[in-house]
Nucleic acid binder design. Sequence first.
DNA 1: AAAAATCTTGAAGGTATAATGAATTTCGCA
DNA 2: TGCGAAATTCATTATACCTTCAAGATTTTT
Lengths: 231, 231
Amino acid sequence: MSNAPHILVIDDESQIRRAIRTILTEKGFRVTTASRGEEGLTLAATNEPDIIILDLGLPDMDGVEVCARLREWTQCPIIILSVRDSEHDKVAALDAGADDYLTKPFGIEELLARVRVALRHSTSRQGAQTKLVKAGSLTIDLVWHIVKRGEEEVKLTGTEHKLLAYLAANHGRVLTHQNILTQVWGPADANHTEYLRVYMRQLRKKLEVDPERPQYILTEPGIGYRFISDG
Amino acid sequence: MSNAPHILVIDDESQIRRAIRTILTEKGFRVTTASRGEEGLTLAATNEPDIIILDLGLPDMDGVEVCARLREWTQCPIIILSVRDSEHDKVAALDAGADDYLTKPFGIEELLARVRVALRHSTSRQGAQTKLVKAGSLTIDLVWHIVKRGEEEVKLTGTEHKLLAYLAANHGRVLTHQNILTQVWGPADANHTEYLRVYMRQLRKKLEVDPERPQYILTEPGIGYRFISDG
DNA sequence: AAAAATCTTGAAGGTATAATGAATTTCGCA
DNA sequence: TGCGAAATTCATTATACCTTCAAGATTTTT
């Protein structure tokens, strides 16, 4: 699974690395590990993890320093692990840009819960960003209901957008009439192919360069329709 | 009226409330306190704090319940304070939507550091959007809660402003009725679309050049509304 | 090549949704 | 407790959308 959250663990104790890797992998995360600060910084830059778990007691450089270096360019959530329990250490790390601080020894479940919190944060940040499907000069924002043709926006009705979104989400695939109808109109209208014809035409009118020779919304005669996108 | 970050403290022990209030006020924060869960929920809805500090051991309802109720409509950072140190309690609270968990007794400096972390999160969430939204002759200051039309200030009621602020913060995006209603009125009124119609009209009357041909607040029939800004 | 099936195209009526204006209730404040 | 502003509710008008239908074009079948 390539879209599973990716976690970078930076810790010099190999047992801890192994333990955390086992636990996180079991929960479905992708895990990368580093034993030294420099290595961790490099991996963070190349792999762009979703979360970084960082031990303060590294051999080559101070964890707070690693934290600060990371914050120069990334907002990725950082969870600190440390044997140091002093308030001073916690404040230093948190003010250096860390998002959370756990003192060793820590409970597995608590670590996982705090990872989930960090994940919530990073995904809510991503959620503000737009997820786009592109096809020629078309840009379809599935999240925010915005469709652009070049620079100008195309106004779509609710049903039109629902239909286009379903086509775009399955771009490249042939979708049967019944399949589309049940998804967009609901199972009750599964055999109202007239609806499809009317709406496909409206979409083509609004989106295609030449509606009579569609290049995005293709007809698969006797079967259904298909949406062609870039990439 | 100050724009200092606003923190809501929900705790039943009056000494703790007083202590936290003193410390936070000293650091320049605005502080509101509540001693019971229901009171806290109400204050959270009316005052819209930037951070909520919540004690788990409330007399009238469970802290985890308070957490869950808050998460129905707000993303505001929640820091848990609790005497309970068990892993089970921590996991329950964090999974209910809390962002951090401190066990009593806690260090003042650590609390402040974690408040700063929470503040970073809330401002970076807002920071993704511009704090000053301009649309034609309109200027909407999301931080100072000021709306100007040309040079003169527009007087808006509480609900009107909350609604406009939410639209402006998400300018360019299509927001569904339910989305707007849960954010502005709360999840209980998620299907009272009448409210929206009435308030959209009032906003248009106060903001639009020609309220009958709105250029800022657009209707997306069957879906919701959208605010158009410059750029 | 003719016929049949499928798809496209255009337009119109009915219906759900939105705008409007105003009355009523609630709430905050003195 | 009473006043005024704000929030909610309601009835009416206006609008946009979904649905429906019919005729022309295209593709497939025989």
